[in-house]
């Protein structure tokens, strides 16, 4: 038996215990309702055995089913004590207590398997029909600055940016993206951006706020700018994707945000502690 592992046996893969049982029944060329529990249990265990010999990982569902089959088999072999019957049935993955229940479940599974096969056919048919994909070129997105991007461009550039970040991140040591100090760091960055903008009194490209030029800092700066833009404190301008992002101060609108001006960043930072 041990030597069997030397041979290259290719085992079909199954979607689960029902799939395997179904396969065994088909191989035996019997109707689901005519299956001998003893036979099927033996074959099922033999299959698990060969999986074990091939050092394949056996999913827990397969083992639970093996236990279920063995219990069904033992029930058929042993005389039943009417007193204890059905008393020790616990709730379990399959909840199968009689051979009939097993057959019924297999039958139900078979029906859905057939339905899945039908879907596969429809999928194949539909794969042959090519649909128009304009990539959204007809749908324009007008931003506030009235620059025109197509949706396709936006999505395309976003995915490019994500890929770039992923590449850079992969090259670097892992830095946890979210930590308790995050709010604090962003608030400090926002204060810094604010101070620079006030001093220069003109628009400043985003990269000027990044001092150490680490990926981490770029992200912090970007998030700080988004937050400030959301609070209507700064205007962000970009002509085209990948062009510099220009940051400019929004002139004061007294009643709107004077009260929290300047302090808001620090306040949020303190609150989060």
């Amino acid at each position: 038996m041990v030597e069997q592992a030397e041979y290259k046996i290719k085992l079909p893969t199954f979607e689960g215990p029902f799939d395997l049982l179904f396969h065994l029944i088909k191989k035996a060329e019997v109707d689901i309702w005519q299956v001998s529990i003893a036979d099927i249990t033996e074959q099922y265990l033999a299959y698990l055995q060969s999986m074990k010999e091939l050092n394949l990982e056996i999913a827990s569902e397969f083992l639970v089913m093996a236990a279920t089959l063995l219990r069904l088999k033992s029930k058929l072999l042993l005389p039943r004590s009417p007193k204890f019957q059905e008393q020790d049935e616990e709730e379990e993955l399959f909840e199968i207590n009689t051979a009939e229940e097993l057959f019924q479940r297999l039958e139900e599974y078979r029906a859905f398997k057939k339905a899945a096969l039908h879907l596969r056919q429809k999928e194949e048919e539909q794969k042959k029909v090519f649909l128009r994909s304009t990539g959204g070129q007809k749908i324009m997105v007008f931003t506030q600055q009235e620059s025109v991007y197509t949706i396709w461009e936006g999505a395309h550039h976003l995915s490019e940016i994500m890929q770039r970040f992923a590449k850079i991140a992969a090259q670097r040591e892992y830095v946890p993206a979210f930590s308790a100090v995050e709010d604090f760091v962003i608030a400090r960055k926002a204060d810094y951006i604010y101070a620079v903008l006030r001093q220069k009194r003109r628009s400043v490209p985003m990269k000027d706020f990044v001092i150490e030029s680490s990926l981490w800092e770029v992200i912090i700066t970007f998030i700080a700018l988004l937050e400030m833009s959301r609070q209507r404190k700064v205007n962000l301008l970009q002509d085209r994707p990948f062009e510099p992002i220009l940051v400019s101060l929004i002139e004061k609108q007294p009643e709107l945000f004077q009260p929290e001006e300047g302090e808001s960043g620090e306040r949020t930072a303190k609150e989060s502690y």
């Binding site: 979607e15 689960g16 215990p17 029902f18 799939d19 999913a59 569902e61 089913m65 993955l93 399959f94 909840e95 479940r105 139900e108 599974y109 859905f112 398997k113 339905a115 899945a116 096969l117 039908h118 879907l119 596969r120 999928e123």
Partner: peptide
């Protein structure tokens, strides 16, 4: 194949819960 099995069950039994799907598939 697994995706198609689940889709078939959802398509015919909807609305359906995860447990119901798992009890039919046994996985």
């Amino acid at each position: 194949t697994a995706a198609l099995e689940v889709l078939a069950i959802v398509a015919y039994k909807q609305p359906v819960t995860r447990i119901e799907i798992e009890s039919i598939r046994g996985v």
